[in-house]
Design a protein around this nucleic acid. Structure first.
Lengths: 337, 337
DNA sequence: TTGAAAGCGCTAACAA
DNA sequence: TTGTTAGCGCTTTCAA
């Protein structure tokens, strides 16, 4: 079994160093001046005993745990995982630990359970990934007195948030496709957190701005397989020559479906994704997409929560501009139809 | 700024309910019998004040935080992300929160910083993902008195671990390839945590068992792009007809490189991956691979730590058997050479 | 600069 | 079943 030697506590250190407990505390926190002699003795005692201050006791008295909680509808999908990575990286550099808790669905009991789990621990603040309905639902359940920020693809009122300007990116992508000569651009969207996400909004706005007919939105799930099915169906329609997908995985599925249905990408139809997934560049054909700085977004969100925790006035928004990456999956529309 | 009303504490509840503090504690923990009348009053008071027990205080007195820490070299790559998901899911169902901290490299100071970050918080146990050198290094730095388990692709002595039987899976895959008529199977490996990982070991063992010449191992990084380069190089060698890659992303890169180099997969060369990445099925050609139950592995590891925390005798190993998935990227060797 | 005393919010031990 | 008393390990007054 594990060695049963109890961990050393502060009084052990004080005794060994021949000083009082508060003096040890002073060298620990660096809050007050301690004579070099005693400081040295305390440090030696700490090393000798391998003493580590008890985090629970510290959190209790200081009313501050050094833990940031992340609430998200998913943790393993590319955008989510990268955003979490960005938060974790900044937090770690700052001496904060991050927790992750998945909100499986937007159902009341599920959301409550996830939020309660977080609230029942000693945490300093919360970052919620509001990329989907579970995330949005979770955000609503968090009491207003706990420092909270959200991360989303669209600006909204409420808690401070780090946002990606998805709408602008989508517009840029759609305009690029239109400039290639396509009569319109079809859109396959991923599940959304509100009435409409930034990608869909931007797509629609871009088409309207150019007085182009707006096709009906095609809904996909998060699974690449759903893109595959949609690609298969779309391969039978000769009127679709350009497709903008809500993310790269779906775009890959759509391309596969199109190919199976006998269409060539990009010769017969252009397909663009969103996110710049690590595999987008080596897909065949390599995906035209929009690069999003998810990790940077996470870092910004971290900055926002710590600002809130420190009780600073925090600027409400913090926007990142995605970047269009043109590769092989899109091309000028064919002259002959 | 945020509303400054202080959160209610247990004494507020006691006062409002007209009972003593320990009585409130009793209804909170359910440890002892409380009369229905008082229980009701306490519950009402809790609801009225929106009281939540202070986690730091609880952890301090009970010497148990309900937090499991995960230490990993990476969090966003498929296998890692899924494993973490599995741990989180089990933990959440059990009322535990999980933290993640990335160990960026195996350098001493980096590893120490990551481990210290974890040890400085009130945690109940640790799960380390020993898939790579940073993970292995971190495991070494954890004091023996904190409940710790590791997750790996190969059995080793030390702390209890949840393992995937990678070697057996690799053998199965290699035998399958050999049965297809290939004279040998080349191997592209991902970065390893020790002298050799289970995939490489299994591959080598399978070849030897059939008295087949063992080609030199080709080392890739974790980036799909490195697979791409390797594929390009391999496309010039007519002696390679079968390649077993350490993971699916690398396999995808290799396939892309091979195609660019003028080789057709699987007609000219068979390529197999490892993991069954979500995109493996829709890649062109769809990848033959080995499905690994990462989430299940994470769940098992969670079971192991909680066993340790509860001070149970924990069985040291817990093995999962991966499953061969044959798709389109492998085929019988061509008759003509 | 230092130590004694108090107290963070809770649970456990002990009487009643 | 209930309340009183301690005490978890630390930081923060407050004197000295």
């Amino acid at each position: 079994m594990s060695s049963e030697r109890k961990p050393a506590v502060i009084s052990d250190v004080a005794r060994l160093a021949g000083v009082s407990v508060p003096t040890v505390s002073r060298v620990l926190t660096g809050a007050a001046r301690v004579s070099p002699d005693k400081r040295k003795r305390v440090e030696d005692a700490i090393a000798a005993l391998q003493f580590r201050p008890n985090a629970a006791a510290r959190a209790l008295v200081s009313r501050q745990a050094r833990i940031i909680a992340i609430l998200a509808g998913n943790t393993s999908r590319y955008g989510y995982a990268e955003t979490i990575r960005g938060i974790e990286e900044s937090a770690r550099a700052d001496g904060y630990l991050v927790t992750i808790t998945v909100v499986e669905s937007a159902a009341d009991d599920v959301v409550d359970a996830a939020v309660s789990l977080v609230l029942d621990q000693a945490i300093a603040g919360i970052v919620v990934l509001k990329f989907d309905p579970p995330g949005a639902a979770a955000l609503h359940r968090i009491p207003t007195n706990v420092p909270t920020v959200s991360i989303a693809g669209i600006r909204e009122t409420g808690v401070p948030q780090a946002v990606l300007d998805e709408a602008a990116a989508a517009k840029q992508l759609v305009n690029y496709l239109l400039d290639l000569g396509h009569e319109t651009v079809h859109h396959v969207r991923v599940p959304l957190s509100r009435r409409e996400d930034g990608r869909t909004t931007g797509w629609r706005a871009a088409l309207r701005a150019r007085s182009v007919q707006v096709p009906e939105v095609i809904a996909a799930s998060w699974e690449p397989e759903s893109g595959h099915q949609i690609g298969l169906e779309l391969s039978e329609r000769d009127d679709v020559t350009a497709i903008f997908c809500g993310n790269d995985e779906i775009a890959m599925g759509v391309i596969r479906g199109l190919s199976e249905g006998g269409k060539s990408v990009p010769d017969d139809v252009s397909v663009a994704g969103f996110d710049d997934h690590p595999l987008a560049a080596i897909w065949s054909p390599a995906l035209t997409t929009v690069r999003q700085d998810f990790a940077g977004l996470g870092a910004r969100a971290y900055g926002l929560v710590t600002g809130l925790i420190a009780n600073e006035k925090v600027r409400k928004f913090s926007s990142e501009r995605p970047e269009l990456i043109v590769r092989e999956s899109t091309a000028r529309v064919r002259a002959s139809r």
